Simulated assay, not measured.
Amino acid sequence: MKVRFYATFRELIGRKEIELNSSRTVGELIDYLAEHYNPEIKKQLLESPHAKEAGKAIDGMILVNGHNILHLKGLDTELKDDDEVHIFPPAGGG
C-alpha cells in the first residue's frame, strides 16, 4: 500500500510517501510508523489532548482510498496491499 504524508508529518517521517505491505489495520499502521520512523506521529494522532477532549479517535485526518476512517471503522479500518492512505496532521487556525 502507498502511504502519503502531509505538512508536518512529512518532516516527522522524513519522506513524502512510503510503500508498505505489513499493516492489516490503520491502528497497526500507526504503530508501525511510530516504531520504524518516529514515535511523535502516534503521539500527535492518538494521544493529543485535543483528540481526547473532542472524544475523537484521532487528531488529524486519515483517508483510506479517499474515505475518512472516522466514517469507516476508525483505527480498526482494514487495509489491503493496493490501498492508498493519506495522513494529515491536526489543522490549526482560529
Rank of each mutant, 00 (worst) to 15 (best):
Y6D: 10
A7T: 11
G94L: 06
L20Y: 04
V26A: 03
L45V: 08
D82I: 04
N38V: 11
L46E: 07
E84R: 13
Y6E: 11
A54L: 13
F5H: 09
L46P: 05
G66M: 05
F5K: 09
L75S: 08
M1V: 12
R10D: 07
I13S: 08
T25N: 06
L63K: 04
R4M: 15
D81V: 14
K80H: 12
E40D: 05
L33C: 04
G14V: 00
K42D: 09
G93Q: 03
K73F: 06
L63S: 01
D82C: 06
D31W: 02
K80P: 08
G60S: 02
G60W: 04
D82Y: 06
A7K: 11
G92Y: 01
H71Y: 15
L12P: 03
G27F: 02
A54G: 02
P49E: 13
L70T: 12
V85R: 07
K42Q: 09
E17T: 14
I87D: 09
I41F: 05
H86K: 11
E28W: 01
G94Y: 04
A34C: 10
K43V: 05
Y32C: 07
K43E: 12
I87A: 03
K56N: 14
I69T: 04
S22A: 14
K42A: 15
K56A: 11
I58L: 00
Q44P: 07
T77G: 04
I69C: 01
F5C: 13
R24I: 08
T77N: 01
